[in-house]
Design a protein around this nucleic acid. Structure first.
Length: 266
DNA sequence: AACGAAACCTGCGCGC
DNA sequence: TGCGCGCAGGTTTCGT
């Protein structure tokens, strides 16, 4: 589910709810999700801050950083003593009686614990490329020049540029007028520059939309980070392009569904 | 080195 | 109603 904007929204929302609270206990209902050793190190740590890099959420504690990746369907809920649901796999009990619950239908999410200071120098965070906000278009172009893969595959490669997933890749490519199945090495400097500029604009708009959506649900249970931004092409196969009126096409690119307009993108 | 496919999981919608 | 299949916004691992 979550790409960079959704994770940013989850981060901001959680910061308003659990900052300064101590983890007094943890219940693990799906052992593969978190080891007992990690649990023992987390207990008695206080949540001092929450940060984000790419699609990773990072709980900054006294002595450690807990790195959380939501993968496809991870979500956080803040509850008290309601019954624990089927897909709530990790429950962090906090010092004010609240519980931070990690919910993940497909169990793809991951937790990694790092000693402060090593967080950004070890996997997985050390593998991440720059986010679109800090990526220099010329640097990006120079990477593309050597890639014999579809441009969309490169745009979603977290080692090259961090934070973009399947939905935003489609939207960015549409906005930059580039077909998802073009070879990366055939993309021009002008196009690469548009892609970075459009990535920044679209991600920023999504963050603002997500923030708006969440703010209207301040007292709701879920902290999902779902945003309401109008999608121009993603999941619109057979519908009409808002710009030229042609039919939106769907094609599998490197195993991922990809939506685009043949007329507006080349 | 670099690429594509498979694997990790569960639930949902669709056609028969 | 029930079953099988395809599909889902991500990442890592494995084989070529």
């Amino acid at each position: 589910m979550p790409e960079l904007p959704e994770v940013e929204t989850v981060k901001e929302t959680l910061k308003t709810r659990i900052l300064g609270l101590k983890i007094v206990d943890i219940e693990i209902y799906y052992p593969k999700m978190m080891s007992d050793n990690t649990k023992s190190l987390l207990v008695n740590q206080t949540i001092l801050d929450i940060s984000r890099l790419g699609k990773y959420l990072i709980f900054n504690l006294d002595d450690y950083d807990l790195i959380s990746h939501l993968r496809m369907e991870g979500r956080y809920y803040i509850k008290t003593d309601e019954p624990v649901l089927k897909h709530e796999h990790v429950v962090f009990k906090l010092s004010n009686g609240q519980q931070l619950r990690y919910h993940d239908t497909r169990k793809f999410g991951t937790f990694d614990l790092r000693i402060k200071g090593e967080t950004y120098h070890t996997k997985p965070l050390s593998l991440l490329g720059k986010e679109p906000f800090t990526m220099d278009p010329v640097e990006f172009y120079n990477v593309l020049r050597h890639k014999d893969r579809a441009i969309k595959t490169v745009l979603m490669d977290q080692k090259i540029i961090a934070g973009i997933g399947n939905i935003y890749a489609d939207e960015i490519l549409y906005s930059a007028h580039v077909r998802p199945d073009r070879k990366a090495k055939d993309v021009s400097l002008q196009e690469a520059t548009w892609m970075i500029e459009r990535a920044r604009g679209i991600l920023q708009s999504a963050i603002e939309a997500g923030g708006t959506t969440i703010r209207t649900y301040v007292s709701s249970l879920g902290v999902t980070g779902r945003f309401q931004l109008t999608l121009m092409v993603h999941q619109r196969k057979g519908e009409l392009c808002y710009i030229c009126g042609d039919e939106i096409k769907k094609k599998i690119v490197n195993g991922r569904s990809s939506f685009f307009c043949e007329t507006c993108q080349s």
